[in-house]
């Protein structure tokens, strides 16, 4: 098993900093859904991780903890994620993306 980043929507959706999307070295890995938090009654959307592209470097964790000071990202084992976004299930919109979450297929 290996670690991937997981973003807590309840913390992320309280602000609109989006720093993690700008500091991930992998392209289209941390994506932003501007409805994710609003569905739960928060003011903003939230970032999420396409786990099949995440290499587990944890740079986003440092950025979220030390630059944004939100502590919203944690590294967890991929088989312990109940549901996750993978690239095949991500739909791009005009100004945002959405993902149909599913249990990550770990072989």
């Amino acid at each position: 098993m290996y670690l991937v980043a997981d973003i807590n929507v309840d913390i992320c959706a309280q602000t609109s900093c989006k720093l993690c999307t700008q500091f991930c070295p992998e392209a289209n890995t941390i994506l932003y859904n501007d409805q994710a938090g609003r569905d739960k009654g928060y003011k903003y959307g939230a970032a999420y991780v396409a786990v099949d592209r995440c290499k587990g470097c944890a740079q986003c964790v440092w950025v979220c903890d030390n630059m944004a000071k939100h502590n919203a990202i944690k590294m967890i084992m991929i088989d312990q994620l109940p549901n996750a976004a993978i690239t095949d299930n991500i739909v791009y919109g005009e100004k945002s993306t959405t993902a149909v979450l599913a249990g990550p297929a770990v072989g």
Partner: peptide
């Protein structure tokens, strides 16, 4: 706008 459009760079 990062994270909301498909980037030129791939895996």
């Amino acid at each position: 706008q990062m994270g909301s459009f498909k980037e030129i760079l791939e895996e």
